[in-house]
Amino acid sequence: MIGADAIRGHITLMVLAILEHQPSYAYEISRTITEISGGTYAMKQTTLYTAVKRLESLGYLDSYDATSDSGKSRTYYRLTGPGRAHLDEKRAEWQQTRDLVDHFVKGDGRP
């Protein structure tokens, strides 16, 4: 299982990436993350909602009401221009982070 602390800083990247190709609503985003994790990470609903709302307040997402596949009205979120640029930044940052962490994960802790 992936701990909440370990993944906290990367939820933004995951949400932006899911919305990169098509708009979605909160539950669908949460379900996508859970499915992709293969059961190794169960995201709390408030954690996802917090991330989505923060991204919306920063102007990276905007929202609109629409009917979902189940026929119910849901609030959809879609990526904005700045959101797309932020996703690129987060991806580059993740590459650097991963390279650094990998360095230690491989047991090569020498300077």
């Binding site: 609503y25 539950y27 379900r31 609903q45 189940s70 119910k72």
Partner: peptide, 16 residues
């Protein structure tokens, strides 16, 4: 609005 959206999430999860 927060309550409505969180309730929607819970409802979707429940039905799933």
């Amino acid at each position: 609005r927060a309550r409505r959206e969180l309730r929607d999430m819970m409802e979707d999860k429940f039905h799933a």
